[in-house]
Structures are given as structure tokens and as C-alpha cells.
Design a protein around this nucleic acid. Structure first.
Length: 463
DNA sequence: AACATACCGACC
DNA sequence: GTCGGTATGT
């Protein structure tokens, strides 16, 4: 598979890692397509490969796709560049003659990419600053390169995070996909990049008016939204009712007035914008802060959930609650928020996302190159909660590739890289060099995890 | 103003 | 029983 038809943006992986950024729970709408993939949209599938094949940088075996209002953007990545192309309705891919409008469209897509990935922000420089200020961050930085905040559409982001309460990435992804499939018409269909004869349909994100109808709540329930169904319908209706009649900017603008109103909140202060967001149903402090950080340019905002609370306790020695189960009171929220802002400063929200991502089970072995020996402290802690509850389970040890002919055993190891049982079984069946390498890497990882555990125990009994 | 409980669905 | 929370009740 060549990169014919793709333009390139020279960019080191450390500035932006697509597999990390597009699957760490910021956007839920990118599909990740690989040669071994048999399903439609796959960011939740266990057969995904999390990293481009670095052994063959000229031919990445992963493609990422997102449907915008008027085009589908397709991306691939090598260690030194991002490759992009866009596909429009009604343009057969067999058209080999580049026209003038193609050049215009490429320029538009490039502009969109620079904005969406915020490529003018020097992430490497930010990492350096955070590492200087913060010992904990410096431990993780090398293994979790290229994790940056996307600049997403506020409406889409708001709905996605209303879905996120009491929920996991895998299910949120399915819900958002259902939303697009059933509430906006297909823009175009496109062949799978690696699997012949597989055709995929692409739907843009539906506008507020499409979800505001009084019947939407009930219908969304049947699509698996649960109690969040009414939140979404009512929020959509509030937007249409209260902000749907803004002076039409340009008739050609495909955005609805209420979407533009949300977009304009970028110009407000953090507190003002948050106050507006909190008026919607299903939007509390955490969801509002996610929207502020991820689509309103409020880079200093640190959304606090139970997960972030765990990091504050574990990594930064914040006092844990005696009864194990703390309720996230406004005061606790503020305390944690202030703590992280004090540590990381102006881009605290960006720094928080790096650690948040590093703590996902799916990234447990991310960035561990074969044979490399990470320092003991840089390995993620084997928190039971994370290991058991994170259903993303999409990533495998870096640099290793799954194939369609994987043995059941290899699959097992991939699906839970930290599970010692499957590892023991796998050792007895070192049939392929690839599997043996995987076992070696994972063993090394586990031994590090063990060392950390032991040290923790010793520290405790010593004090 | 600070807590408790229900809510929905998937998983252990 | 658990959970990347919020709304509603006391």
C-alpha cells in the first residue's frame, strides 16, 4: 500500500502522536483502520494497532479517518511526517487528473489540520518545561511522547462529554457513532484502505436541530444512551431555542447559529464560558471543564474526575480519603485543580492529559521499545481499578504488529499485556520470533511493576 | 452548603 | 458490586 494521493506534513512523532492523541478519550469519532481490521469504526476494537509500523516508515499500516461537514479527512503517520488527504462527495477516486479545485481543497484541509492539531504549539518545548518543574512528569515524558490537546468543535465535544458520565471510552465511541449514523445522512462512502471490497459509510456529526425534537430522547435510549439520552435532547433544544436565531453570518456557512454561538464562547473568559456551559443539562463541572480545555482554548483548565483524583493521590502524595471512596465534592475538586495548576502553570490542562493518557491501561506498554530498559519508576502503577475497568484495550506493546493469522494465545497476550497467566502460557509456546519478543518485553514490564510494588511495601512498613 | 441516592448499561 | 458524573432530594 503506497501513499499515493497523500500530501505530507514534516513533523516529528514527539510533536504529535496520532495513535495516542486520537484514542486517548479526547475525540470519539476517529475511525482507526488497519489491515487486520474487520469492523467498521474501530477505535474500541481490540484488533487495532496503536502505533504506525516504524519498521516500514514509508508505508504506515494504519489509517485514521474523520468525517467533517463537507469532506472525509484521512491520515497516516511515520516517525517524521503526517500524511493527509481529503475525500469529497461525488468525486470518484479514479480521477487521476489534479484540478485547480483540488489544490484549493488540499490547502483548506491543511489549514484545518494545523488548527485541529494546534501545530503551532511546540509540544516538545512544553514537555521540557513541565519536566523541569515536575519530577513526576519527567519520569513519564519519554514514554509518552506526542500527546497534545486537539482543538475540537464545541458542539460535538459537548455532546460527546455529556455521554461520558459513568462511562468508558469504548461505549462512548459506540454511542457517538450511533448518533452520527442515525441523525445525519451519509456524506459519502469510501473503501477500506487495506481490505479489498470493504466499503465504509461516513456521516458528519449531526447539528443541534437534528437532536432537539421531542422524540429524540426516547429514540436515543434505544440507541444505548441510557439516562444521557434526555440530557442530549434537552441540551440540543436549549441551544436551538435560546441561541438558534443569532444573526446569520454567512448564508454559505454550514454551521447552525447555535453552533456558532458555542464557538464564540472561545472569546469569553474561562469563568464566563464555564458558567454558560453549566446551564445545560447533563453538564456539571467536569464535563464543562473538558469542553473548555478541548474546544474553547482554555489550556490551563484541568478537568478532575476520579481518575485524575487517583493520580493526585498516587503520584503527588495528595491525602487520600480514609474510607477509600471519596465523593467528589466541589471543595475536593478545587483542591485538586489548584494543585495541578500550581505544578504545571499556564498549560496545566495539556500536561494533565499526558499523565491521564499515560495512566490508561491501553497505553500500559506504550512507548516501550523492544529491548529498551525503562527506569523502574517510569512504569505505570498496576492499579487494580485501571487494569480491570479500562475497556479501551486497544493498544499492544509498541513496535509489535498483530496479524490476521495470530494464534489465540498471542491474541490473549495482546488483549491483556499485563496478565501474568497468559504470559506463562505463552512462554511454553514460543513458536514465532515475534511472540517471543512480545513475551520478553512484557516480562520485563512486569518485573518492573513488581519492583515498584515491593518498594512501595517496604516504604510503608518502614514508616 | 454539604452529603446521599438514582440513573443506564457493560463488565467482573 | 464497579464505573471518565449529574440532577435531585434532604
Amino acid at each position: 500500500m503506497s501513499l499515493a494521493g497523500f500530501k505530507s506534513i514534516p513533523l516529528p512523532l514527539a510533536q504529535c502522536s496520532l495513535p495516542a492523541v486520537l484514542k486517548c478519550g479526547q475525540s470519539f469519532r476517529w475511525s482507526v483502520l488497519t489491515p487486520s481490521d474487520t469492523s467498521e469504526s474501530a477505535s474500541a476494537s481490540t484488533s487495532d494497532i496503536a502505533k504506525p509500523d516504524i519498521k516500514e516508515p514509508e508505508a504506515p499500516r494504519v489509517e485514521y479517518r474523520l468525517c467533517l461537514k463537507d469532506r472525509v479527512v484521512c491520515l497516516r503517520q511515520s516517525p517524521t511526517a503526517i500524511y493527509y488527504r481529503s475525500v469529497f462527495p461525488g468525486t470518484p477516486s479514479s480521477n487521476l487528473i489534479a484540478s485547480e479545485s483540488d489544490a484549493t481543497r488540499d490547502a483548506e484541509t491543511l489549514a484545518w489540520l494545523r488548527d485541529y492539531f494546534q501545530l503551532d504549539i511546540d509540544l516538545v518545548a512544553l514537555y521540557k518545561q513541565w519536566a523541569e518543574k515536575d519530577k513526576v512528569f519527567s519520569k513519564f515524558q519519554e514514554r509518552f511522547e506526542g500527546i497534545r490537546i486537539l482543538r475540537q468543535d464545541p458542539w460535538e465535544n459537548l455532546v460527546s462529554f455529556i455521554c461520558s458520565s459513568n462511562n468508558n471510552i469504548s461505549r462512548i465511541t459506540k454511542m457517538v457513532q450511533n448518533l452520527c449514523t442515525y441523525y445525519s445522512p451519509s456524506l459519502l462512502t469510501l473503501e477500506h484502505p487495506f481490505i479489498a471490497d470493504e466499503v465504509l459509510a461516513y456521516h458528519p456529526f449531526p447539528p443541534p436541530s437534528a437532536l432537539a425534537g421531542s422524540n429524540a430522547g426516547q429514540h436515543l435510549r434505544t440507541l444505548g444512551f441510557g439516562y444521557r439520552a434526555d440530557f442530549i435532547q434537552r441540551t440540543a433544544k436549549m441551544l436551538v431555542d435560546d441561541h438558534g436565531l443569532t444573526t446569520p453570518q454567512a448564508p454559505a456557512n454550514p454551521m447552525e447559529a447555535s453552533e456558532i454561538w458555542l464557538l464564540e464562547l472561545r472569546k469569553s473568559s474561562t469563568d464566563d464560558a464555564r458558567a454558560e456551559l453549566l446551564k445545560f443539562v447533563g453538564v456539571g463541572r467536569k464535563v464543562a471543564d473538558c469542553v473548555l480545555l478541548m474546544s474553547m482554548d482554555k489550556k490551563e483548565v484541568v478537568p478532575v474526575d476520579t481518575h485524575v483524583y487517583q493520580i493526585a493521590v498516587k503520584q503527588y502524595g495528595m491525602k487520600g480519603s480514609a474510607s477509600g471512596k471519596p465523593s467528589m465534592t466541589p471543595k475536593l475538586y478545587e483542591d485538586i485543580n489548584a494543585k495541578f495548576k500550581g505544578i504545571w502553570g499556564d498549560y496545566a490542562g495539556w500536561a494533565h492529559t499526558v499523565l491521564f493518557t499515560a495512566d490508561l491501561k491501553s497505553f500500559a506498554t506504550y512507548g516501550l521499545p523492544a529491548g529498551a530498559s525503562p527506569s523502574p519508576s517510569s512504569s505505570p502503577s498496576p492499579r487494580k481499578r485501571t487494569v480491570k475497568s479500562d475497556k479501551m484495550a486497544a493498544s499492544a506493546p509498541a513496535l509489535l504488529q498483530r496479524t490476521s493469522s495470530d494464534s489465540p494465545l498471542k491474541r490473549k497476550v495482546f488483549e491483556d499485556p499485563l496478565d501474568e497467566n497468559s504470559l506463562t502460557e505463552a512462554k511454553a509456546e514460543l513458536s514465532t520470533p515475534e511472540l517471543s519478543k512480545l513475551v520478553k518485553d512484557t516480562e520485563e514490564h512486569l518485573s518492573i511493576v513488581e519492583r515498584v510494588k515491593r518498594r512501595k511495601r517496604n516504604d510503608k512498613s518502614a514508616s
